[in-house]
Nucleic acid binder design. Structure first.
Length: 916
DNA sequence: CAGTGAGCGAGCTTCCGCTTGACTT
């Protein structure tokens, strides 16, 4: 499938659909458009939609003005009227949609050739809705991109399948309701900007559940014997003389191994099992020292292994991770490049099917490289293992009707290695099975006290390598035996005497289940039918971005934040994070696609409830009060009176009010009782800076609620003798002598702050002098540096001024009224001229929340995509108009906040109470 | 998780699934 030049087909190939008219064909991907243009030739113009062209509005700014006041506008779904969706053309697609319209204006027929799956059908429908064609519209589908298949598809079109579109729309609406209703619950109860969704929340839950298993896990220790036996035949490269073997039984009782233990560290079924501890194992080894050993039995079984199916998205991500160390995202980026440049087929697929020409190419390549004896008589066919596979694409394979070897591509770096991986896997998939023999040798000996000890050794001889010549799959577990690796044993027979070269005790302990990696999590999701090939990489990205998981090497470790979020969802939205939720959804969508069910009753049940079960609306509305933020963010540390809490500033430990931070990168399963004590013992990362020579007190730097600061350590008022003393007395005493504190200046940092800096900070407030009988001091406050004179104050411009400002300067500053200092100091960033609507001049200013436009009356923040430098008069006027529409009266709302001032001040504190 | 005094434009965060290119330094 070499890329052809230009997007409009002009190659002189057969024109199957007849001469004359112009046909516009729209596919999803630009790369595909290029190829297909070449196959269709004259009379066809092939363009791409570049994925979906319309969607529900993402944020307020995208909601058309006439809907903004609707109660459901925030959702983009009219939940009051049959869940009717509101579609807008995505901002970044507007110009492209116009281009498609222009092309359509010159066409006589429109072919909607998007992928043949649920999403593809929907894209086709959206195209029809948005382009509003007045020319005939045909739906064209194909599963294979070859000239024959494409030409056949062009002359065998069908109608749009509106039921399939209905199913897609239902999926879309459900995901929106889930995501946009549940996320705000997290903002209120846990932390702003968090998110929940059908896929990401289950992915997070999987990672959290695995960590819980690890935390609940109790390791069991067990011992065995490892021996190396010598067959006394002399060794050659092909036939070793000695081989390793492990103790499996003593006097008929099987020796316990890792798999015999439960996750609680106890034996599953102790009868007939021998659990060796270190002492017993060493003693047995001693009693076997010098014993005679002989081969008790030799068991041979045929070994046969078939090649792996060609790559689909998830298997490619897994293997690229194991073998090339690429993340899911990196893999997809590299694959995208290979696809765009015509080296491989499409990389977001759940199909393992190869086209006939690809099968032929793979067989041909295998025969040329390894000989025809390596190629089976009949092509291999791979049925998809993925249950809800939509199979709109082929497997991922080298492009074209004959494959380029990696060397022939001229590729380099990651692109070369990924291509090579895909090429090998594809070629191997059409090769013969590997065959051989697996051998189990059992060796027995009698100890000095008459025990009969039996050892096992296993080997594998591959007599015909078949596909293994081309490709061996990697393993996630480095300890695991590679299934395909050859391991030879000496050619021994029953009764042969053996000499023990070495025999020693070996200790093991059971291991907790391994953490997920990106690749294994994606695999798990795919097996549970959650998520789609185009989203696997971004799901990982989302849960990383939200801080739900972090990476430790390649392992995905859940944060305590994830524990809190998952705990909330499990307790209050159990159905939504059920692992089968998506599977049930898919069943309903299939019903809808077949015409066996309607979407509205189903969505209504989901959103409004029924049959005695609460719907989503009630759960996020009336029942919201039942969610206790404190409880949801608290986890008792087993066996202690310590609580792990997730706060706004990260996780911390709480023991009767004593608090200490938990390092952000501490894995939850590493937070043991001992570790917690250790954290309490070295309080909160304080850094001792030295002693204040004036007071003899220690000065430390700490990180506090308001950022880094320095403080002094006061002597303990009393020895801890009076344990009965009421806290009140202590508070009183502490109130009498408060330690001096001071926030670090912006130029300082916690790591580098010196004693000298600290003493300077602790010297504040500085008395500047006296004005009109009032003492003037310079100090650092909540809003930065300022001067204080009685009840009056003025901000200072720089922190340095706190130490340098003179009395004369202070007089000057106090002579000016309060507000002006700030307001006049900020000149407009840009002047825009008159608002065409109101005639008042508009200027752009920099404010607390970033740049905004003001006409003196209304103010409106610039939105995403608006730039101070480039914003137009029209856009600014539009923003102001929007702002005016929202808050038309100026006085009433201005008064309210004023009256609420005390409440507003409490707001931050209130938030904290909610949380803590 | 330290503790101190203003007066000011609020507005937005978020879902899943399709698919790339557009900016500037």
């Amino acid at each position: 499938m070499p890329a052809k030049k230009g997007s409009a087909g002009s190659n002189g190939s057969n024109d199957t659909a007849g001469a004359g008219g112009n046909r516009l064909v729209i596919v999803e991907s630009p790369a595909k458009a290029k190829t297909i243009a070449g196959y269709l030739g004259r009379g066809y113009v092939v363009e791409s939609s570049i994925g979906h062209i319309r969607d529900l509005p993402t944020k307020a700014a995208e909601i058309p003005a006439r809907y903004k006041e609707e109660s459901w506008a925030r959702l983009g779904v009219n939940v009051d009227h049959d869940f009717e969706p509101l579609y807008v053309v995505n901002t970044d697609k507007k110009s492209h949609v116009k281009k498609l319209k222009d092309l359509m204006a010159q066409a006589d027929e429109l072919y909607l050739a998007t992928d043949e799956d649920r999403e593809g059908e929907a894209i086709a429908w959206h195209l029809r809705e948005e382009l509003k064609p007045k020319i005939p519209v045909k739906r064209m589908v194909f599963n294979e991109i070859t000239k024959d298949a494409i030409q056949h598809a062009a002359s065998n079109t069908r109608e749009l399948n509106l039921r399939l579109v209905d199913a897609q729309e239902t999926r879309r609406i459900l995901d929106r309701l889930y995501g946009y209703e549940v996320s705000p619950v997290l903002w209120k109860k846990v932390m702003p900007k968090l998110s929940a969704g059908r896929v990401q929340s289950v992915a997070t839950r999987l990672v959290v559940e695995r960590e819980r298993e690890r935390m609940a896990f109790t390791a069991a220790e067990y011992w065995g014997l490892k021996a190396v036996f010598d067959a006394l035949i002399g060794s050659s490269p092909d036939t070793p003389s000695s081989f390793p073997a492990a103790l499996v039984a003593v006097d008929g009782a099987r020796v316990a191994q890792g798999r015999d233990f439960t996750s609680d560290g106890v034996l599953r079924a102790p009868e007939g099992l021998l659990h060796l501890d270190e002492e017993a194992a060493r003693a047995l080894a001693a009693r076997l020292d010098g014993a005679d050993f002989a081969v008790q039995s030799v068991e041979r079984k045929p070994y046969r292994r078939s090649p792996y199916a060609p790559f689909r998205t998830t298997t490619l991500q897994q293997e690229a991770s194991r073998k090339l160390g690429l993340s899911a995202k990196q893999t997809m980026q590299v694959a995208q490049k290979l696809y765009e440049n015509g080296y491989i087929t499409y990389m977001r697929t759940d199909s393992t099917t190869l086209s006939a020409s690809a099968v032929a190419a793979a067989r041909d390549q295998a025969a040329r490289l390894y000989g025809s004896s390596y190629v089976p008589d009949k092509p291999r066919v791979y049925a998809s293992k993925v249950k809800n596979a939509q199979e709109a694409h082929e497997a991922i394979r080298p492009a074209g009707d004959s494959f380029r070897t990696p060397a022939e591509t001229g590729l380099r770096g990651a692109e070369f290695r990924l291509y090579e991986l895909i090429w090998k896997r594809t070629v191997a998939s059409q090769m013969k099975d590997a065959v051989g023999e697996s051998v189990t040798v059992r060796v027995a000996g009698v100890s000095s006290t008459g025990e009969r000890a039996e050892f096992n050794a296993t080997g594998k001889i591959i007599t015909f390598h078949g596909f293994l010549k081309a490709y061996v799959e990697g393993s996630d577990d480095p300890q695991a035996e590679l299934d395909d690796r050859e391991r030879r044993l000496p050619p021994v027979d029953e009764g042969d005497a053996l000499k023990a070269e070495s025999l020693e005790a070996e200790g093991h302990s059971t291991r907790p289940p391994a953490r997920y990696t990106e690749a294994s999590l994606v695999k798990e999701l795919e097996e549970r039918e959650i998520g789609r090939p185009s989203t696997y990489a971004s799901i990982i990205g989302t849960i990383l971005d939200r801080g739900y998981v972090f990476k430790k090497g390649s392992a995905l470790v859940p944060s305590f934040l994830a524990f809190a979020v998952v705990q909330l969802l499990e307790r209050h939205f159990g159905n939504l994070v059920d692992y089968d939720f998506t599977a049930h959804m898919e069943d309903r969508l299939d019903d809808i696609a077949r015409g066996d069910a309607e979407r509205v009753p189903w969505l209504r049940r989901f959103y409004y409830g029924g049959d005695g079960e609460a719907g989503l609306k009630e759960l996020v509305g009336d029942q919201l009060g039942e969610i206790d933020p404190k409880e949801i963010s608290s986890f008792p540390l087993p066996g202690t009176d310590i609580m792990v809490r997730v706060g706004r500033y990260g996780p911390y430990l709480d023991r009767e009010g004593q608090r200490v931070n938990v390092p952000e990168d501490l894995a939850p399963d590493e937070l043991t009782k001992d570790k917690a004590e250790e954290l309490f013992a070295q309080p909160s990362g304080d850094r001792e800076l030295g002693t204040d020579p004036a007071t003899g007190r220690a000065v430390v730097a700490k990180n506090g609620r308001f950022g880094p600061y320095v403080t002094e350590i006061l002597e303990e008022p009393e020895a801890p003798a009076a344990t009965d003393a009421k806290p009140k007395t202590r508070t009183k005493k502490a109130a009498a002598v408060k330690p001096r504190t001071g926030s670090l200046l912006k130029s300082m940092s916690l790591d580098t702050v010196t004693l000298e800096d600290a003493l300077k900070l602790l010297s504040l407030p500085r008395v500047v002098g006296e004005i009109d009988g009032d003492e003037v001091t310079a100090q650092n406050g909540r809003f930065g540096p300022y001067l204080k004179k009685g009840t009056d104050s003025r901000s200072l411009e720089t922190e340095e001024q706190m130490f340098t400002v003179t009395l004369d300067e202070a007089k000057e500053i106090f002579a000016k009224p309060k507000q002006r200092g700030r307001r006049a100091a900020a000149p407009p960033l840009r002047e825009l001229g008159e608002d065409p609507e109101t005639g008042s001049p508009m200027v752009i200013k920099e404010g607390r929340f970033g740049p905004y436009v003001t006409d003196g009356q209304s103010n409106a923040s610039l939105r995403k995509g608006d730039e101070v430098e480039s914003i137009t008069v029209e856009r600014a006027a539009e923003l102001l108009a929007e702002r005016r529409a929202k808050a038309p009266v100026k006085k009433a709302p201005a008064k309210k906040p004023a009256a609420k001032k005390p409440a507003a001040k409490k707001a931050p504190a209130k938030k904290t109470t909610k949380k803590t």
